[in-house]
């Protein structure tokens, strides 16, 4: 009997699944350390808080993306849905004169509905998520331009107050959006770890055929996951419209790549079944800190962000393969 289990001493086992997240955490610590040593102002706690402020919407979008990627799928439509939400909010508030309390639930519903529809097509017609969400991406961007091809500024008092108010703790502050984003992450993490929906998400990502044979509601879970991603994208869009105070069809171009990168750097397997929302938070922070370092440095140009993200993607995907290969044997 010991021969069956002897290869895996019990002591080290629980840590194995946290390795990717720990790797991201150490990467973040190293980057922060380097920043703090090189630039004096960097060690100010507000710098980190500002990373949250500037990336609150990305965090929400990436949280939704994490659900999708955990099932082994992908959602390319998130950036476009974000843009559509800013556009829809701006248009309804400014041109149709809707009150904010009607606009908010409506745009969130639209986002979730788009995700739901894509999930249905993916599940029932067995078309690759890549293609379906690509169509969703085109659709949402296209819808933006049917509303308007130019930027619509938002002057609604609720929106401006959300943009300008600060939540203070002593000398530090964050925007209300950060609080929203953190609530989303906490709720998301709870759903993933403590509800059947969350566990089914992992199970489908681990082995969809088994999930079906074990009697898990595969169809419902898969569709819900895309609806969650659509909802998170819409919420991210709302937060972005707080941040930008405008609706524009060119907002959030390429955001799907940032979201995917954050999720992967956060240690979630692109093939599904393994990962944590806390990793995604760390992934978003890594992206934010890279940008902050480049801003602080002044001599580095913004495009280094993309190159570094690409390199990190490479390293982390390779790391995943190595861990995966070791697990298999």
């Amino acid at each position: 009997m010991t021969s069956l289990t002897g290869r895996w001493p019990g002591l080290r086992r629980p840590q194995r699944k946290y390795i990717p997240v720990l790797a991201t955490l150490s990467l973040l610590a190293v980057m922060y350390g380097v920043g703090a040593v090189r630039y004096e102002a960097f060690s100010d706690g507000q710098v980190i808080l500002n990373v949250f402020v500037d990336n609150a919407f990305l965090l929400v979008v990436a949280a939704g993306m994490t659900f999708v990627i955990l099932t082994g799928g992908i959602d390319l439509s998130v950036g476009s849905v974000v843009a559509l939400t800013t556009m829809l909010s701006a248009s309804l508030l400014q041109e149709q004169g809707w009150p904010p309390y009607a606009v908010l639930p409506f745009v969130l519903f639209v986002g979730a509905l788009l995700g739901f529809a894509m999930g249905c097509i993916i599940h029932y017609f067995e078309i690759q998520p890549f293609i379906v969400t690509l169509a969703g991406m085109f659709l949402a961007r296209g819808l933006c331009y049917t509303i308007s091809t130019s930027s619509i500024p938002i002057t609604d008092p609720f929106w401006t107050s959300m943009a300008q108010s600060k939540v203070r703790f002593g000398e530090y502050f964050v925007s209300p959006s950060v609080i929203v984003a953190l609530v989303v992450v906490i709720v998301g993490a709870y759903v993933l770890s403590h509800t059947r929906l969350g566990r089914n998400t992992y199970a489908i990502g681990g082995n969809p055929a088994s999930a079906l044979l074990m009697g898990l509601p595969v169809a419902r879970t898969q569709i819900t996951v895309y609806a969650i991603s659509g909802f998170c994208s819409a919420l991210g869009g709302v937060l972005l419209s707080f941040y930008m105070l405008s609706g524009y069809g060119l907002h959030a171009v390429g955001m799907e790549l940032d979201a995917i990168a954050a999720v992967v750097i956060g240690g979630t397997l692109l093939t599904g079944g393994s990962g944590y929302l806390v990793g995604t938070v760390l992934g978003v922070l890594v992206l934010g800190v890279i940008q902050t370092i480049i801003t602080f440095d002044g001599t580095l140009s913004s495009w280094w962000t993309k190159i570094v993200i690409g390199a990190l993607l490479f390293v982390f995907i390779l790391l995943q393969r190595v861990i995966g290969a070791r697990k298999a044997r």
Binding site: L257, S301, W304, I307, G310, L313
Partner: peptide, 14 residues
């Protein structure tokens, strides 16, 4: 190919 898709834009700007 996602890797080069992301990093390549940076390279082009570089």
């Amino acid at each position: 190919t996602l890797i080069l898709m992301v990093a390549g834009r940076g390279l082009a700007q570089l």
